[in-house]
Amino acid sequence: MPSSPRSVPSPPHSAASGSRLAASPVALAALVAANLVPLVGVVWFDWSLKALLVAYWLESGVVGLLNVPKILAASGRGDGGSSINATINGRRVDLSPPESPRDGFHFYPTNVPIAGFFAMHYGIFWVVHGVFVWSFDAFAGGAAGAVGGVPLGAVLLAAGATVLSHGGSFAANFVGREEYRSVSPGTQMSEPYRRVIVLHLTIILGAFLVAASGAPAAALVVMVVVKTALDAGAHLREHARAEKRAERPEEPAGERIEVNDASA
């Protein structure tokens, strides 16, 4: 039988935090700027399609890595949830938010199990995605000349811009605007999947279309612009959800997550 949800008090909520939760325009500008690095690479430095795919793959890794401290610091009730339970290998684990959240940004030992599960699950997703990216020549079927090589230095520069962008958003929005107060560890665990899976499925589809057309520069530019627009939209939706959660911190509804390991 499922364990009964335990009541978790609302985290401390500063009077000013409600008005501070709108997404930081500086963080949004940094996100767009980071996305312009691949555009510059395509237009002025002849980046290949494969270089773009590697850069975007590294970006998804940064998103997942930064989500671990977010889960560890999450102290809210999520989308109205007061208790989170998961079943891992047939064992029920209590993954509720901290019972006594402290004022300010802190990591909570009780959030370690769900952070560990996320790191394992997302890590597998990221590795499989990487295998596809580095083997794209074979998947594209005869488009090896179109995808070309990967300029490692330039791609690492793009990855560095991504770290600054997402790291800045973490500092400005999650910490500075206190989004950690209103999100539960389980809800935070799901955020990267909302953002990354749809975005990168679109990228993969675009990559096949670009490869089929011979990867002209114009097609690569369109791909970068579409990805930037999708990324900016996902960023705004993520912080809009955070704002809505902050507006209803007293809702008593329960939340339960069932996580079944396929290897069980």
Rank of each mutant, 00 (worst) to 15 (best):
N67F: 08
N67G: 07
V68S: 07
P69Y: 13
P69E: 12
K70D: 04
I71D: 04
I71F: 13
L72A: 09
A73R: 00
A73G: 07
A74Q: 02
R77H: 15
G80R: 08
G80Y: 08
G81F: 12
G81A: 15
G81T: 15
S82T: 15
S83H: 14
I84F: 15
A86M: 11
A86K: 06
I88V: 15
I88G: 05
I88R: 07
N89P: 08
R91N: 12
R92A: 09
R92S: 10
R92T: 10
V93G: 06
V93H: 13
D94K: 03
S96C: 05
P97F: 02
P97I: 04
P98I: 00
P98A: 04
E99R: 06
S100L: 13
S100R: 14
P101Q: 02
P101H: 01
P101E: 00
R102C: 01
G104T: 08
F107W: 09
F107S: 05
F107R: 02
F107P: 01
F107N: 00
Y108L: 00
Y108T: 00
T110P: 00
N111V: 00
V112M: 03
V112P: 00
V112A: 05
P113S: 02
P113T: 05
A115Q: 00
A115K: 01
A115H: 00
G116C: 05
F118E: 03
A119Q: 10
A119H: 05
G123L: 06
I124L: 14
F125Q: 13
V128I: 15
V128Y: 13
H129G: 04
F132M: 11
F132L: 14
V133W: 01
V133I: 12
V133Q: 02
S135F: 15
A138D: 13
A140H: 03
A140M: 04
G141S: 15
G142R: 12
A143F: 07
A143L: 08
A144D: 15
G145M: 11
G145S: 12
G145Y: 06
V147C: 09
V147I: 14
G148P: 10
G148D: 11
V150C: 11
V150D: 03
P151L: 06
L152P: 02
L152M: 12
L152A: 13
G153K: 11
G153Q: 12
A154L: 08
V155I: 07
L156E: 06
L157K: 03
A159M: 10
A161Q: 02
V163A: 10
S165H: 09
H166S: 09
G167K: 03
G167Y: 05
G167Q: 09
G168Y: 04
F170R: 07
A171E: 09
A172K: 06
V175R: 11
R177F: 09
R177I: 08
R177C: 06
E178C: 03
E179A: 10
E179D: 13
Y180M: 03
Y180K: 01
R181W: 04
V183C: 05
P185I: 00
G186V: 01
